[in-house]
């Protein structure tokens, strides 16, 4: 085995160890994040809050403004994603209905 071969093998091992440390052992912890970076379950709960308020005030413009903070292309995209997660996570039917109501108001599937 030549010196260059050994050099590259050790280099690759070093890169691997660096990635393991940086991704698994001691990953970056974020501060000062934005709402669009929230984990999916928190995003879904945020959408559910919007739906709960919309159920009472029926203010679609207000709801769309709040959903815009999620950073999706459209409010409906945020709703669809939240609905998918809520179904998958087996949210209570009353919550699913709130999400569906708002989604329908935005022109999405019911």
């Amino acid at each position: 085995m030549t010196r260059w071969t050994r050099f590259f093998i050790v280099l690759i091992v070093g890169i691997g160890l660096g990635l393991l440390y940086g991704w698994v052992v001691n990953p970056v912890e974020y501060v000062n994040t934005t709402i669009d970076s929230l984990r999916e379950d928190y995003k879904t709960d945020y959408v559910l809050m919007v739906a709960e308020v919309y159920h009472t005030n029926q203010d679609l413009e207000w709801a769309m403004n709040r959903l815009a903070l999620l950073g999706d292309e459209t409010s409906q995209a945020s709703l669809e994603a939240a609905l998918d997660f809520a179904v998958q996570a087996e949210y209570a039917s009353s919550d699913l209905n709130l999400l569906k109501d708002l989604n329908a108001a935005l022109g999405g599937r019911n």
């Binding site: 070093g14 990953p27 970056v28 929230l38």
Partner: peptide, 28 residues
């Protein structure tokens, strides 16, 4: 080689492609 490899690995995992940006929590 090992120092260079570790440096490259850490730089990539912390600066270029860190994990968890889409996994943040409300308290942060």
């Amino acid at each position: 080689a090992i120092v260079l490899g570790l440096s490259l690995g850490l730089f990539y995992s912390w600066a270029i492609s860190p994990t968890g940006l889409e996994e943040s929590h409300p308290h942060i």
